[in-house]
Design a protein around this nucleic acid. Structure first.
Ligand code: MN
Ligand code: MN
Ligand code: ZN
Ligand code: ZN
Lengths: 132, 132
DNA sequence: TGACTAGTTTATAATGGTTCTAAATAGCTG
DNA sequence: CAGCTATTTAGAACCATTATAAACTAGTCA
């Protein structure tokens, strides 16, 4: 399978559960945004056996640490993740809590003029809140 | 007192608790960022009587709704608020979870080229994550 | 192939920030 | 002051997330 090597190279054992979660997350036409609850539902829909919620959390965190997923900063009681790990930004629809990708080309280049010494910039993320 | 009228004009009764919270939040040299826990501590330090945690939550939400406070989108288990309600951006120090203001002049002007129809932009917020 | 080991999964409990509840209190108006 | 409504409060409830610890499994090597 295509994900076995990817996992092994990351130092993660290619377990049945992780491979199935890879299918749901990465074997898709498009990238997408999700909360753990939404992912849990998607997994239930696409897979016959059960994967425990703890494993879903564990796996998402493992993948995030390896850089296969990103967390998106929004104000919500749930954590949002993104399978699109390129540098990009987001519209956040306050009405329904859905995110929409904003490519870098949709936002001008962002040049942070101020420096904090001893610190490096890890990421620059723009969140554009939308209302009706 | 200076906050009585502000509260009345907002349709909020100027209760003892709200006035005291106003003192802590707004009677300061500089604006600041806080979580509810940090605010609770600040209130304990500056005020003799007790204000219940429920009232702190109620008041912060009431003030946010009136536009006297802003919520800042970050990935944290706690909600961050800001007494600086001008349009501005943030550095987020991943090491200690502290926020630093980035003025609009520290970030170039941001021009969102894409439109979502039926939707208006409510805010544009840039979060710059810092690591060592 | 059969141990051995470390990594992983799992059900379930615990945690902790936030919200809810409903009774007591306090501000406002007449 | 009386009456009305908003507000405060202690404590319970909620719920996303994390911790626990026992069962299981992938990888290794004899
Ligand atoms: Mn979630
Ligand atoms: Mn908080
Ligand atoms: Zn995205
Ligand atoms: Zn700020």
């Amino acid at each position: 399978m295509k994900y076995i090597e990817k996992l092994r190279n990351s130092g993660l054992r290619p377990t049945k559960q992780r491979l199935q979660i890879c299918e749901v997350l990465f074997n898709t036409e498009r990238t997408f945004h999700f909360t753990i609850n939404e992912l849990e539902q998607k997994i239930k829909d696409k897979i016959d056996n059960k994967i425990s919620l703890a494993t879903i959390y564990n796996t998402v965190h493992a993948f995030e640490k390896k850089g296969y997923l990103k967390q998106i900063p929004v104000n919500s009681n749930q954590t949002y993740f993104d399978t699109n790990i390129t540098d990009h930004h987001h519209f956040y629809n306050l009405k329904d809590g859905k995110l929409i990708d904003l490519e870098n080309s949709d936002v001008g280049p962002i040049n942070i003029k101020r420096k904090i010494d001893g610190k490096k910039i890890k990421s620059i993320e723009v969140l554009v809140k939308l209302e009706d």
